Simulated assay, not measured.
Amino acid sequence: MSSPTNMPPTSAPSTPKSGKPRKSARPGWVRAVLAGAAAVVVLALVVLLARWLRTLGPVQDFLTTYPGQAELPASTPLGLPAWLGWQHFLNAFLILLIVRSGWLVRTTARPKANWTRNNKALIKTKNPPKKISLDLWFHLSLDALWVLNGIVFFITLFATGQWLRIVPTGWDVFPNALSAALQYASLDWPLENGWTNYNALQLLSYFAVVFIAAPLAIATGLRMSNAWPQHTARLNRAYPIEMARALHYPTMLFFVLFIVIHVVLVFTTGALRNLNHMYAARDDAGWLGFWIFAGSLALISASWFMARPLFLRPVATLTGKVTR
C-alpha cells in the first residue's frame, strides 16, 4: 500500500494502537546525569541537616553519652591476626568475580559458550545434566569456593574469639551506631581505631554482611542452582524459586553498596594505617600494607580480565563439555 505523500512510509511517527504517539525515551547519559545531580542534592541536604542537628543541646549531650563505639567484652582479642588479612583478600577476590559473573548471567541474552556436566564430574547431583551458560558455570564454581572459604572463616572466627569484634553483645551498640551515623553524615567523622574496636556502625555493618547477607546469598543461590532437588514438591512449595530470585539480586546490590562505602572509608580515614590493619596485621602507618594491597589489586585485575571464554573454556572442560 503506497503512502499518500511523497515521503516514505517509514518517516511517519510511530503510533501505538491507542492512537497516541509514543514518547521518546531520554538517552541513557541524560538519565545518568539527572540521577547523579539528584544524588548530590540529596547528600548535600543530608549533610546540612546533620550539621544543624549537631548544634542542638540535646543532640550534643547524646553524642557525649554515646561517642560511637560500643564497649567490647574484656575477653575480646586485641588487634587483627594475619589469617584475617588473608581471609579479607580471598573474600574480596571471590566476591568481585562473583558479582561480575552474576551480572553477566543476568544481562547476557546469548552466551558465547555453554557447559554441560559430564557423568565423571567431581560434583554430582540427582538431577540430570543440564546445559548452562559458561558464565553461569563460572558463577557457580566461584560460589562453591566462596562457601568453602566462608566455612574456614567461620571456624577460625569463633576459634580465635574474633567474633566478639563484629557481634553485638550489648544494647548500647544501637545508640552508638546512631551517633556514628550522625557524625559521618555531618562530615565530622568519628575517631577511627579499628585495631582495637570498630565503631558501632561498622560493627553492625560487618555483622549484617557476615551473618545475614552472606547466608542469604548462599540460600537463594542454592535454590536457583541445578543442585537443588527439583522433584521435591513439598520443599519447592515451601521455598519457591520466585522468592529466591526476588531476594538474590537485592542481596548482590547490598554487597556492591557495602564494598563501595567500605573502600571509600578505608581511603579517607587513614589509608596506610587501615591497609596495614587489613593486609599486614600491624598497627602503624608504614607502606607494607599498601604494597600488599597493590599486589592483590593487580591479581584481582588480571583475574577480571581472564574471566572470559578464551581462558575459562579449558578449565570448564575438566568437569564437563563446553559448546559454542
Results as ranks from 00 to 15, higher is better:
Ala227Val: 07
Ser225Trp: 01
Val30Arg: 13
Ile292Lys: 09
Leu122Gln: 04
Leu80Arg: 03
Ser301Trp: 14
Asn118Pro: 00
Ala316Pro: 09
Ser2Ile: 04
Ala121Leu: 03
Ala217His: 03
Leu53Thr: 05
Ile155Met: 08
Ser101Trp: 01
Lys131Ile: 08
Val173His: 07
Thr64Tyr: 06
Leu204Asn: 07
Val266Asn: 05
Ile261Gly: 09
Leu288Val: 13
Ala44Pro: 00
Trp228His: 01
Val40Tyr: 08
Trp103His: 06
Gly320Tyr: 08
Ala208Lys: 01
Leu222Asp: 00
Ala227Gln: 10
Ala177Phe: 07
Thr269His: 11
Pro13Ile: 03
His139Asn: 10
Phe293Gly: 04
Ala38Phe: 10
Leu288Ala: 10
Gly79Trp: 07
Trp103Phe: 12
Ile151Gln: 05
Ser296Ala: 09
Arg106Ser: 07
Ala214Glu: 02
Phe174Ser: 04
Leu275Arg: 03
Ala177Pro: 06
Arg282Trp: 02
Pro4Glu: 06
Leu56Asn: 07
Leu43Asp: 07
His248Arg: 06
His231Arg: 14
Thr169Lys: 09
Leu312Asp: 12
Ala302Glu: 04
Leu288Lys: 10
Gly286Cys: 07
Asp284Pro: 02
Leu63Cys: 03
Ala294Gly: 04
Gly295Asp: 11
Leu142Ala: 05
Leu253Glu: 11
Leu49Gly: 04
Asn274Phe: 00
Gly57His: 13
Ile300Gly: 02
Lys112Met: 13
Ala159Met: 14
Leu48Arg: 14
Leu84Asn: 04
Phe267Asn: 12
Thr269Trp: 05
Thr196Leu: 09
Asn276Lys: 02
Leu272His: 05
Leu157Gly: 02
Thr10Pro: 00
Pro309His: 01
Thr55Trp: 01
His88Trp: 09
Pro240Asp: 06
Gly170Glu: 14
Val47Phe: 08
Arg308Pro: 09
Gly161Met: 04
Thr317Glu: 15
Val210Ile: 15
Pro21Val: 04
Val46Ser: 11
Lys321Gly: 00
